[in-house]
Design a binder for these strands. Structure first.
Length: 868
RNA sequence: GGGUCGCUAGCUCAGUUGGCUAGAGCGCCUCGUUUACACCGAGGAGGUCGGGGGUUCGACUCCCUCGCGACCCACCA
C-alpha cells in the first residue's frame, strides 16, 4: 500500500477487508490452528472465549441505519476482545424474514396478475426460495463494507437445515412435555394477508370512531346496547349488563330479540359491562371480540362466526348482508336499523384500533384453530433466572420491564398462514382428528401403521425458530462442551426485547438449561437529525451505505457511536460522520508525519524512552486513556470510549505531543506511541488504522491481530511539569492575542517572553518559544518588566512596551474581578464550619490549596495593575 | 388504566456509588499561508443543568411534586 498524501478511505477499504478475510482473521480465535489461537495473557491455560451473534438481517434486503448501528457496536466489541487476546467468534446471520419477504413476494405475484391461492404451499415455498436467492448477496457485501469481522463460513440462514432440525427437536420435546396444544381461540387476523399474528405484531392506534346505541326489543320493552361495531350484531349471542346495575337487574336471565334476525339471546350479568360507559349494556360477540370471547367462556355462550377469513360477511348473516365487506355491512346495518327505528344514538369517540403492522388493515379478531404454547412454565423459569441476576442488562431498567412482561404473558400462538417459513411438523388423521408429530414436512400426506395423516398447512411464527438463535449459531449440542455458549452478549434493538430477547431466554433455558447469554445490550432507534423517526413516507431515511461511500466506513462507525447510549432513541446526522472522517484524516496525517520523522532519523529500532516532559506526559495520557477505554468497553459506553480516543488523538497527541516532537524527534517513542494509538482506535475505526499500519515502514503483520497495548513507563513528576508548561503556553497565547486585538501594530512574533527564577521554564526555553510562537524566551536577569502572566506558581512576563500594557488594562481588571469571585466562593465554603468538619479532609485540603493559589494570583495581578 | 425513558450551551448529546471553575462535537465570533493535516492551527463568546419543594456541610447527580415530550404494555364495548 502507498501512503497517499490525502486520506481517501474508498481507495483502501475494500483491500483492507480482503486482506483480513484472506488471512482468516475472522475465524473463531483468529487463525485456527496457529499460535494466535492461544496467544493471550490468560493466567489459566484455558484461552478466554468471546462470542457474539448477529441479529440476522433480511437475507434479500439492504441494510438500514439500524443495522449500521448494530454492526458498529458488535464489531467494535469483537475487535476489542480480539485485540485483548480472546478467542472471538462473531457469527453472521441472514434472515428469511418470513412475513416481510412474503409481503414483498406476494406484491410481486400480484403485479404479475396472480394470487397465492393459485399455488400449493410447496410451490409457493419453492418460488419464494428462488426469489430470495436471486436477491441475495447485497446484504452480505454491505456487512463487509461496514467492516464486520464476522466468521463468514459460519453464516447461519434462518432456514438452514440445522435451524429447522433444532426447531423441530424443541417442538417435539414440548409436544411430549404437553406444552403444546391445539386450541380454537381468537387470533389477530389480517384479512388482507390472510394470516394470524402474535399480539406483539399488532399495532394499536387511537382513532376516532362512533359509538352507536341500538335497541334490542323484548316483550314489553327494549334494552339499548352501545357498540362500535354494529355489523358484528349477527354474531351476538348475549347482552351483558353489570350485576350491580339497578337499571337492568330485572332483565338478567331473560331474553331479548336480536334485531335483523329472529334469534333470541339471553341477558347475562357480567363485570365486563361498565355501568358508566355508554348505556351500560353490551352486546356480546364471542367470535369477534377479545372481551366478548372471555365473557362467552364465563357464561358458556355459543360462538357464531359472521366474518369470513377474506374479510367479507358470511352467508349466516342473511342474504342482505352475506358477501358484503365489514364496512359495507356496517353502513347497511345502520341504515336498516334506523329505518326500523331501532337506532337510538350516535356519538363520536376515540378508541384504540388494532392494525396489521405491514399493510395497515384493521385486524379482525377471528376464531381459528391454531397451535399454542403454554408459556407459563417457560416464563416462570425465565423469571427465576432473571431475578437471580444471571443476565445483566444495558440499560439496567429493561430487566424489570422484561420480568413484568413475562409475568403477564399469555399463551403463544405459533401458527402462521404464510408459506414462506418452517412448516409445522404436525399431521392429522382426517378420520379421528388425531394429531401426530412427524418431521417429514416435505410430504403433504404420510402413512403411519397403515393410517393416513394429512399435513398441517401452517408454518411457525418466525420468533419460534429464531428464539433458538444463540443455540443454533454456536452449534450447541446436548452433552457436548461448548465454550461459546452462553454468548457473552446479545446485542439487539430495544424494540424487540419482548418479541425476541424474551423468547431466546425462555427457549435457551428450556433447551439447554442455561441462559443463552450473560449480558444484553439494547440499542435504541436511530432518529433523524431532528429527533424524528425515520420513515419512507417522511423522506428522512438515511442510507448507511451512502455515508460509507461518501466519508468512509470508519467515519460512519465513529459518527453513529457518537452520542449514543444504551436503550435510548437518539438523533443522528451526517455532521457526526463528518466529524468522524475528520478524526481519521487527522490520524492519517499524524502517521504520515511520524513516518517522515522515522525516515529521516538515525535512531530507528532503539527501545523507546522518554527524554523530556512532553514525552512523559503523553505516556501518562495514553495509559490513562487506555484504562478508561477498558472500563468503558466493559460497561458498553461506546460513546464515551470514542470520546476518550477523540480527545487523546486530537487534543493531546496531535496538538501537544506531535508539536513538541517537531523539536525532539524521538523516533522510537513516536513509533511506539503511534502503534498504541492505532490499536486503541482499531475496534472503532478498523479500516484507517489497518491501512496506516500497513503503510508504516516498521510494522509487521496485520493490526487486527496485534496485542492490546500495555503500560508505558514514564516519570510522573516530569509529566506533571508538562502540564504546567501547557498552562503557561495557553495563557501566553491568549494574552498575546488579546494584546494584538487591543493594540494596533502589536506583533507577537516580535515579543520576547521573560521569566524569573523558574527551573522548569529555564529548561524549556526553546520549546516554549516555539509553542507560543514568540520571538524568544529568556531570563529577566533580575529586572522584571512588561506584563506578568496570570499563572499561579510561575513568574513569566511578556516583554511589551508600557503603552501596550495600558491597552490591556480593562482585560486585566476583568480578570482580577473574575479571580476574586472564584476566591470568594472558595472562602465561603471554608467559612462553613460544617464543611470543614464533615467533608473529607482531602477535599478540604484541596480547597485550601486552591485558595492559596488564587490569593497569589490575585496579588500578582494587582501588582501588575499598580505597575501600569 | 399501568409502566419506561427523556427534559444540561443555538443543535445533538456526555456527565457511573452526591464533592475540582458543569464538558464534547457541530454551529457562532476573532485571528492565522509556522514545511502532518484548511477534512487545518490559535484564541473566544455561550448554560440560574424543565419549574417548585425537601434531604445534606455540599445536589446536574438522591427523595417528593408539578409541567412538557417520546415510547411501551393493556380486553375500554
Amino acid at each position: 500500500m502507498k501512503f497517499t498524501a490525502a486520506y481517501e478511505p474508498g481507495s483502501f477499504e475494500p483491500d483492507v477487508y480482503a486482506a483480513w478475510e484472506a488471512a482468516d482473521e475472522f475465524l473463531p480465535g483468529g487463525k485456527v490452528g496457529g499460535d494466535d489461537a492461544l496467544r493471550d495473557d490468560d493466567k489459566d491455560n484455558d484461552p478466554k472465549t468471546y462470542s457474539i451473534v448477529m441479529p440476522p438481517p433480511n437475507a434479500n434486503g439492504n441494510l438500514h441505519i439500524g443495522h449500521g448501528l448494530t454492526v458498529a457496536i458488535e464489531d467494535s466489541l469483537t475487535r476489542y476482545h480480539r485485540l485483548r487476546g480472546e478467542m472471538t467468534w462473531y457469527v453472521p446471520g441472514a434472515d428469511h424474514a418470513g412475513f416481510e419477504t412474503w409481503v414483498v413476494y406476494e406484491r410481486a405475484l400480484e403485479k404479475e396478475g396472480h394470487t397465492r391461492f393459485e399455488y400449493s404451499r410447496d410451490e409457493l415455498y419453492a418460488r419464494v426460495w428462488d426469489f430470495v436467492q436471486e436477491q441475495r448477496g447485497n446484504m452480505e457485501l454491505q456487512l463487509r463494507a461496514l467492516g464486520a469481522s464476522c466468521s463468514w463460513k459460519d453464516l447461519t440462514f434462518t432456514l438452514d437445515e440445522n435451524v429447522i432440525r433444532r426447531t423441530y427437536a424443541t417442538f417435539e420435546k414440548m409436544w411430549k412435555d404437553g406444552m403444546i396444544y391445539r386450541g380454537e381461540k381468537l387470533v389477530n387476523y389480517c384479512t388482507k394477508h390472510q394470516t394470524a399474528f402474535a399480539d406483539i405484531e399488532v399495532e394499536h392506534e387511537d382513532e376516532k370512531g362512533h359509538l352507536w346505541d341500538i335497541a334490542y326489543p323484548y316483550e314489553g320493552g327494549e334494552i339499548v346496547v352501545s357498540t362500535t361495531r354494529p355489523e358484528t350484531l349477527f354474531g351476538d349471542t348475549a347482552v351483558a349488563v353489570n350485576p350491580e346495575d339497578p337499571r337492568y337487574k330485572d332483565l338478567i336471565g331473560s331474553t331479548v330479540r336480536l334485531p335483523l334476525t329472529n334469534r333470541e339471546i339471553p341477558v347475562v350479568a357480567d363485570e365486563h359491562a361498565d355501568p358508566e360507559y355508554g348505556t351500560g349494556a353490551v352486546k356480546i360477540t364471542p367470535a369477534h371480540d377479545n372481551d366478548d370471547f372471555e365473557v362467552g367462556l364465563r357464561h358458556d355462550l355459543p360462538r357464531v362466526q359472521v366474518i369470513g377469513f377474506d374479510g367479507k360477511m358470511l352467508p349466516v348473516c342473511g342474504e342482505a348482508y352475506g358477501g358484503l365487506t365489514t364496512e359495507e355491512c356496517r353502513k347497511q346495518v345502520l341504515k336498516d336499523l334506523k329505518d326500523m327505528g331501532l337506532l337510538r344514538g350516535e356519538r363520536e369517540i376515540v378508541h384504540s384500533v388494532a392494525h396489521c403492522y405491514k399493510c395497515g388493515t384493521v385486524i379482525e379478531p377471528m376464531l381459528k384453530e391454531q397451535w399454542f404454547i403454554d408459556v407459563k412454565r417457560l416464563a416462570k423459569v425465565a423469571i427465576e433466572h432473571l431475578e437471580a441476576g444471571e443476565i445483566k442488562f444495558y440499560p439496567a431498567s429493561k430487566k424489570q420491564v422484561l420480568i413484568n412482561y413475562l409475568k403477564g404473558l399469555k399463551d403463544w400462538n405459533i401458527s402462521r398462514q404464510i408459506p414462506w417459513g418452517i412448516a409445522i411438523p404436525m399431521f392429522k388423521n382426517p378420520e379421528t382428528g388425531e394429531w401426530v408429530f412427524d418431521t417429514r414436512t416435505n410430504l403433504t400426506e404420510i402413512e403411519i401403521g397403515g393410517v393416513r395423516y394429512v399435513r398441517d398447512e401452517d408454518t411457525f411464527d418466525t420468533w419460534f425458530s429464531s428464539s433458538h438463535w444463540p443455540i443454533v449459531c454456536t452449534n450447541w449440542e446436548e452433552g457436548a462442551v461448548n465454550p461459546y455458549y452462553p454468548l457473552n452478549v446479545m446485542e439487539t434493538g430495544a424494540d424487540i426485547l419482548f418479541a425476541w430477547v424474551a423468547r431466546m431466554i425462555m427457549m435457551g433455558l428450556y433447551v439447554t438449561g442455561e441462559v443463552p447469554f450473560r449480558e444484553v445490550y439494547l440499542h435504541g432507534l436511530v432518529l433523524d437529525a431532528h429527533g424524528q423517526k425515520m420513515s419512507k413516507s417522511k423522506g428522512n431515511v438515511i442510507n448507511p451505505m451512502e455515508l460509507v461511500s461518501k466519508y468512509g466506513s470508519d467515519a460512519f462507525r465513529l459518527g453513529i457511536l457518537r452520542g449514543r447510549s444504551a436503550g435510548m432513541n437518539q438523533a443522528f446526522s451526517e455532521q457526526s460522520v463528518v466529524s468522524g472522517r475528520n478524526l481519521c484524516n487527522k490520524l492519517w496525517n499524524i502517521s504520515r508525519f511520524i513516518q517522515d520523522i522515522v525516515d529521516n532519523t538515525e535512531n530507528g529500532g532503539i527501545e523507546p524512552t522518554t527524554d523530556n516532559t512532553g514525552e512523559d506526559w503523553i505516556c501518562r495520557e495514553i495509559n490513562e486513556a487506555r484504562w478508561q477505554i477498558e472500563s468503558q468497553m466493559k460497561s458498553y459506553r461506546f460513546s464515551e470510549a470514542v470520546e476518550t480516543l477523540y480527545s487523546l488523538i486530537w487534543d493531546k497527541y496531535a496538538d501537544w505531543f506531535v508539536e513538541t516532537e517537531k523539536m525532539y524527534r524521538n523516533a522510537p517513542l513516536l513509533m511506539a506511541t503511534l502503534e498504541a494509538v492505532l490499536k486503541m482506535l482499531h475496534p472503532f475505526a478498523p479500516f484507517v488504522t489497518e491501512a496506516i499500519w500497513q503503510n508504516l515502514s516498521w510494522t509487521e503483520g496485520l493490526l487486527i491481530s496485534q496485542e492490546w497495548p500495555s503500560d508505558f513507563k514514564f516519570d510522573p513528576i516530569s509529566a506533571e511539569n508538562f502540564e504546567r508548561l501547557m498552562v503557561i503556553v495557553t495563557h501566553a497565547r491568549g494574552t498575546l492575542q488579546a494584546l494584538s486585538e487591543a493594540h494596533k501594530g502589536f506583533s507577537k512574533a516580535e515579543t520576547t517572553i521573560l521569566f524569573g527564577d523558574d527551573a522548569l521554564v529555564d529548561d524549556n526555553q526553546v520549546l516554549l518559544q516555539r509553542l507560543i510562537g514568540a520571538k524568544a524566551v529568556m531570563s529577566d536577569e533580575g529586572s522584571p518588566r512588561g506584563l506578568r502572566l496570570a499563572v499561579a506558581n510561575s513568574e513569566v512576563y511578556l516583554d511589551v512596551a508600557p503603552e501596550v500594557v495600558v491597552s490591556y488594562t480593562s482585560a486585566l481588571e476583568e480578570r482580577i474581578l473574575k479571580v476574586g469571585r472564584e476566591l470568594d466562593a472558595l472562602n465561603m465554603r471554608m467559612m462553613n464550619p460544617n464543611y470543614v468538619d464533615k467533608a473529607p479532609a482531602e477535599l478540604v485540603n484541596e480547597t485550601r490549596k486552591l485558595i492559596a493559589e488564587k490569593e497569589e494570583l490575585i496579588a500578582n495581578l494587582k501588582r501588575e495593575r499598580e505597575a501600569i
